[in-house]
Design a protein around this nucleic acid. Sequence first.
DNA 1: TCTGGGGTCCTAGGACCC
DNA 2: TCTGGGGTCCTAGGACCC
Length: 427
Amino acid sequence: MSARAIALVDGNNFYVSCERAFNPNLEGCPVVVLSSNDGCVVARSAEARALGIGMGEPFFKVRPLIKSHGLRWLSSNFSLYHDMSARMMALLGEFSPSQEIYSVDECFLDFTALPVDVLAHAQKLRARVQCYLGLPTCVGLAPSKTLAKLANHMAKRDSQWSGVCDWNELPSTAQQRVMASLPVKEIWGVGGRISESLQALGIKTVWQLRNADPALIRARFSVVLARTVAELNGVSCLDLGSVPNQREQIICSRSFGQPVVALNDLKDTIINHINHAAERMRSEGLHCQSVGVFLHTYRFNLHKLQYAPSIQATLPQPTDDSRLLIAAALRALEAIYKTGYEYQKSGIQLSGLQPQHVIQVDLFSNGDRLRSERLMSAVDGINQRYGQPMVALGAAGMAHRKHFWQVRNDNRSPRYTTHWDDLAEAY
DNA sequence: TCTGGGGTCCTAGGACCC
DNA sequence: TCTGGGGTCCTAGGACCC
């Protein structure tokens, strides 16, 4: 059996590139995109990176660079990024029968059985995405997913590759040199904790990890890391999940614009989260078996008491009815809420997701179920038609009602591709 | 003053059963 | 007084990812 040829395609500074596609004035200057509440940096242009701005850095620390170095900043515009992502993934899907969409800006493509020159094929897809969408990408090619990630990393870091790095084309001495120069933490699947433990064992570079004893790794760590070691040796252990797995949970959480103290305000935020999450769940034809609620105080404030409770409530039967979910979530909230804390974040989690058709029908509640389905689809229909929540359950979270705890995103660009009003604003 | 949000997978340990 | 062992299922928590 011949080795596999796996491509990892990744958008360069994806959020920044989406902004630049619609606002060419952002070309050539340092640009960052911020998380919600304009809290921290989640995307940086190459120029911003060159200024030493780190990923995840709090915005207040880099703010001085606006004046000193002409740093441009934007609140995140997720409608835009997700729409651009969907377009990019659709384009990329045409280049292989097998595609795994891994994140908003990355996908794996299997080139193994294609009668093409893989390097040329990769360059062709880059050109297509650049031409159709104005988005720059890089491609890593290798016999395993982990090595494809590594090759992609190289393609991004060094312009000698012209955007495509094929691991197989490297002489083995060069492969060794690359691996020996990279700290183990750079590898996909090795985070801060594992990297620390590895260092303690004297495994500091990717090359050392590649040559580590698989049995030792399996025993001291887990099957996951053992697979990583095999993958570094060119043995493919991770298949392409080209059929998306059934989603397991839906989470919705937000940090507040200002601290929240009162139970009633927290209830409003929870109702908001449930309305959002339940709509998404219904749009995917799913029901959930349980609802979780969690709270967080402001974790960076060391002078105040910290409290971060969470609770999981199992429903009598799976449902997608927002009213039932809200009732359960509010009971759960009341169970964990304590006075005397300044809360900074709340969230909910819908889990035990299953498709509608596998749910056992309870004969006695069939009438209720039909009424509930009609009501929920009416609510979703109205909201989809107007593009924003016109109808919400529980009297909270209405678009026209501004809450003090709502997120701040003052510097968001127009939602060029998903909102008619913003289209007008753009031209 | 100001530090995100949404996921997956694996494992350990408890509950329960025979 | 003396109180098994093993399988399965579920959940919480930890680690990772972007």
